[in-house]
Structure formats: C-alpha cells, structure tokens
Amino acid sequence: MEALGPVLQATGLNKSFGALRVAENIDLCLRPGDRHALIGPNGAGKTTLVNILTGRTAPSSGSILLDRVDITRASQRERVRRGLVRTFQINTIFRGLSALENVTLAVAERTGAAANGWSRAYGPADAADEAFGLLEALGLAADALRPVQDLPYGRQRLVEIALALGLKPRVLLLDEPAAGVSSAESDGIISAIEALSTDIAILMIDHDMDLVFRFAKRITVLVRGAVLMEGEAADVAADRRVRETYLGLNA
C-alpha cells in the first residue's frame, strides 16, 4: 500500500471570510483504497473543507492535486469528471424520480450520454443497465422503480451513495452517510460502504464515533479550522488532546 502515490493531495489549504479563518493550513492526503475519516466538533470547518475540495468554495491559498493534476481552480464539473465525487449530508436525490432514474442520471452524465437529445433514453445498452447493476449491488433492486420519496430514509441514503458510485469515483467524500438514520438501517449503510471497491479512496466526514472507528483506518481531527492531529485510528483514539477536546464528550 505504501508504494502507491496519493490520489488526492491537498496542501496548505487556507480560507478566510473577512477576519474569520475557517481553514488554516490544512494538509490532507488520500491513497487509492484509503478509508479515511474527518472528524471534529461542530464548527470545526469540516463542511468548509469539503466545499473547498469539491470546488464549491475557492481556497484563499493552498493547492489540491487529483492524480497529480492541479485542480485547485478547476470547476465542480471538471473535478467530478476526474473522479472526485461527494455525497450530501441531507438527501439531495431527485425525490420525484425512481431510484433507477436517479442513478441513471449520474451514469449518463459520466458517460456523456446525457448530452444526447435525439435518441431514446432507456434503449438498448443504455446507462440504465449500468445503473441497475449498481442498485443491485447495494441491495436496492426491488426498489428500482419506486419514486425515491416513497422509500424508507435509510434506503434513500443508499440511493444517494449509488448516485455517487454512478460517477465512478476515484475519491469519494461521504458527508455523514448515516445521518438521521435508525441504528438498524445504519448497519446496512455501513456494510454497503465497507463492501465498496478498494480502488476507491474514501473520506468520511462524521461525528458518530462508533461509525468512524468501525470504518476508518486513518483519521484527521479538525478543530477550529486547523488539523489537530492525523494518524492511525488507534493512535487518534488514544491521543490525550483528542480525548480532551473532542472525544471527552463521549468517553
């Protein structure tokens, strides 16, 4: 594993809104297959960091490399095209459409089929075939044709993940993938995440500690916009400062 170069490398990211520094010299490095978690108390700047990485917010300084290509100034679309994909904390799937239509939208964007205004959708060899395969892998085959707004919340979260997978991510940012889900359903979501291909580097943002320690090999702790520490999950759990500033709430 050590031999593989980083797929995502963020160096010295800074962001200020006026006098307020919301990101301070943040470094982050993901290798293919990494299972990395980003934790921190509310207001630590986790969302800001995700927004900087995905191109919603421009950093004041610093650089982001994806597969050694500088994407610091690239558009959201360009980053997605290069394989940097995120999911959202609250469901942002297309509520009125079926699960299959949802995921087909993502696949069609990736393959470029979505620009085609003249041939029939869902015809032979369509993006929908691949989309159905993804739903099947996540155990959603039986729900493929139901409007997602009629699905239980936990299944909707899975559709959100399927949507991201439809884009064939190299790096996947999971923003609180099990937020608002009952514990019974959250098991299913975690199993699904654990079963994801090891080609994908995953960064999970969450404050559910059980989830984080079950999932992550490495953890970055963010406090007040800066990295408090980064290391192996066990080291982070054992660290005094982390326990005091953050885990203290739980332990």
Binding site: F88, T92, I93, F94, R95, G96, L97, E101, T104, L105, A108, E109, A113, A114, A115, N116, G117, W118, S119, R120, A121, D126, A127
Partner: peptide, 16 residues
Amino acid sequence: SPFGRSLAGIRENPIR
C-alpha cells in the same frame, strides 16, 4: 431522450 431526462433532474434539483 437522455438529455430530456437530465432536464427532469435539473428541474427537481439543479444543485445536485
């Protein structure tokens, strides 16, 4: 068409 379906996606949620 696939383009037409993508419009449905935009109508539902342009940010997504």
